[in-house]
Design a protein around this nucleic acid. Structure first.
Length: 565
RNA sequence: UGGCGAGUCGUCCAAUGGUAGGACAGCGGACUCUGGAUCCGCCAAUCGGGGUUCGAAUCCCUGCUCGCCAGCCA
């Protein structure tokens, strides 16, 4: 329980006050209630961190409960994937794994009770008729002609519904509230519908299934949930949540709503995400470009960075869209601390050190992680022919360009100072090779004379290089709000065509060949990468770019070209 | 023209009658063997109009804007 500082948001403040005032004996119990019909995404991470976090902070517990009340769309496959995602995020439900379907019996008993109390009735209206009778936002609805059936008749009908005597969709059990209520949810909402479907857990035991509003409040009540946290769109459902619990006179949790997470350059809805998968825009639910937890994980995001992100985003009731840049900041922050540094050259340009012995070789000390001294050093091979990045050379450098150009001296990271003596071009004038000299005094990366060299380049010894694959990812959508579609278009029209670039033959230092699966690394001066557990093969790691390093040269470059024109 | 909810720097979150603060982004600088990291600084906001008060982002009135709700989905 937070001691010195005040609760961080309105939910924690409410819980804090309830605990202090002794409500529920000062106990806190929450739940994370996913429907097992799809994969979890970063938006769910916010809910998970809130549900589990609040419980943890106030000495309570959080249940994992699958809200499986609709057999037409739920599957066991999702149950396992969801459990894995939550575990990965670092939250534990211990032995508190529940299913709404565990309570079907109890819920049915309660339904009979409502019928006996005259608070629910069996309605024979068709779905179309129900819609007509419901009225509109501005006009009241009309009572169902079946609304006045006696409790005895209703009970008999309900039992026969349960026994499977009626076809799917022919009848419903409805709450008897008020067809003129300004809140549509209170206009005699359905409690049970007939569905002759096998359920992933209860099989064919049931052919009537409870609706969300009826089921959810009872699930919470049965589990003794004190604070039932959900998103804003359920605000209108709260009166109904309370109504059922009041009628039944059972333990009454409090539902509290908060704004769901939205992200720029991203879509976060199962429907839209599945459209990306179905249309082959991405490789699957765990494509590293997907905002699903499995995708993000494969991309190389750490659980810690997600939790830190959720923490920074905060919780409120205002609908908002968080800059995806904040997420990127959070991974960089975490990865900077923990990623081992390596060198690889994405766009190689050959450099020959002319005054270096033909078959010479040198193993130089490379700092594994400047942020973590305990990570130590390793040896990296150097030789006469190396690769540097093509963009680190310019024939005619603009102002403030500190890298290689004719006659210019730069440092090779942890190796030598080299000077560009000559440039080899092909017929079209393309630079194909650089001829350089080196200063033997500069071995390791500095000279006794203390001379200043501004540019430091990463490099790979050609003779020693191993080959890796690099997969460079960019935002899936090209504009901040993908939903802002052109006339007659959809969010699919806003896809970024360059969201994936594959470089199958990247020369890299030898150490990269022996990376373990799921290693988190930094390729110096490029970005953070994650060894793809599915695509990598022995000796040929496939590196997913998690996020690029901040690139202030790119900014300067942009500004220079902007002013130049 | 029904009900519910929300409006604070570009973005996200604080301040709950007493100096509008933090984070990200942006801009400038220092430092640096990653143009990374780090450090310092700067820019930048209370939806409008009335009112109450010594004092209002906060309370009252009024207007405006945005979101959600008419599944036998959750």
């Amino acid at each position: 329980m937070p001691t010195d500082d005040e609760p961080r948001d309105f939910i924690r403040r409410k819980v804090y006050e309830d605990v202090r005032s002794g409500k529920h004996g000062g106990k806190v119990m929450t739940r994370f209630p996913p429907e097992p019909n799809g994969y979890l995404h970063i938006g769910h991470a916010k809910a998970i961190c809130l549900d589990f976090g609040v419980a943890e902070e106030f000495g309570g517990k959080c249940n994992l409960r699958f809200d499986d009340t609709n057999p037409t769309r739920e599957e066991t496959e999702y149950v396992e994937a969801i459990k894995e995602d939550i575990r990965w995020l670092g939250y534990y439900w211990e032995d508190r794994l529940y299913f709404a379907s565990d309570y079907f019996g109890k819920m049915y008993e309660y339904a009979e009770r409502l019928v006996e109390m005259g608070k629910a009735f069996v309605c024979d209206l068709s779905p179309e008729e129900v819609r007509e009778y419901r009225g509109t936002l501005t006009e009241p609805g009309r009572n169902s002609p079946y609304r006045n059936r006696t409790p005895e008749e209703n009970l008999d009908l309900l039992r026969r519904m349960k026994a499977g005597e009626f076809p799917e969709g022919s009848r419903t059990l409805r709450a008897k509230i008020d067809m003129a209520h300004p809140n549509m949810n209170m206009r005699d909402p359905a409690i049970y519908r007939i569905l002759h479907r096998s359920h992933h857990r209860t099989g064919d035991e049931w052919c009537i299934y409870p609706m969300y509003d009826y089921a959810h409040c009872l699930e919470d009540s049965i589990e003794g949930i004190t604070h039932s946290l959900c998103t804003l769109e359920f605000e209108d459902n709260r009166p109904l949540y309370d109504w059922f619990l009041d009628q039944l006179d059972v333990f009454h949790p409090q539902q509290i709503e908060f704004a769901r997470l939205n992200l720029t350059y991203t879509v976060l809805s199962k429907r839209k995400l599945s459209r990306l998968v179905e249309n082959g825009v991405v490789d699957g639910w765990d494509d590293p470009r997907m905002p699903t937890l499995s995708g993000i994980r494969r991309r190389g995001y750490t659980a810690e960075s997600i939790r830190s992100f959720v923490d920074k985003v905060g919780v409120a009731k205002r609908e908002s869209t968080v800059d995806v840049g904040l997420l990127e900041h959070c991974v960089r922050e975490d990865l900077n601390r923990r990623a081992t540094r390596y060198m690889a050259v994405l766009d190689p340009l050959k450099v020959v050190i002319e005054d270096y012995p033909e078959d010479g070789e040198d193993w130089l000390d490379f700092v594994n992680n400047p942020e973590d001294e305990s990570a130590g050093t390793r040896k990296v091979p150097f030789s006469r022919e190396i690769y540097v990045n093509r963009k680190d050379f310019m024939m005619e450098p603009p102002r403030k360009f500190y890298r290689l150009s004719p006659g210019r001296e730069v440092r090779l990271r942890y190796a030598y100072y080299i000077r560009c003596e000559d440039v080899v071009t092909d017929r079209e004038g393309n630079v194909v090779e650089l001829r350089c000299s080196h200063d033997p005094e500069s071995r390791g990366g500095s000279t006794p004379d203390g001379r200043k060299v501004r540019g430091t380049l990463h490099w790979v010894s050609a003779r020693h290089a191993v080959t890796v694959e690099a997969r460079l990812y960019d935002r899936l959508f090209g504009i901040p709000n993908p939903m802002k579609a052109p006339e007659g278009g959809t969010f699919m029209d806003n896809l970024n065509p360059d969201s994936l670039r594959v470089l199958p033959e990247v020369p890299a230092e030898p150490a990269l060949a022996s990376l373990g699966p799921e290693d988190l690394i930094q390729l110096e001066r490029i970005g953070y990468f994650h060894v793809d557990p599915q695509r990598s093969r022995e000796g040929y790691p496939v590196l997913n770019m998690t996020v690029a390093l901040r690139d202030s040269w790119a900014k300067i470059e942009k500004k220079l070209s902007g002013h130049g024109k």
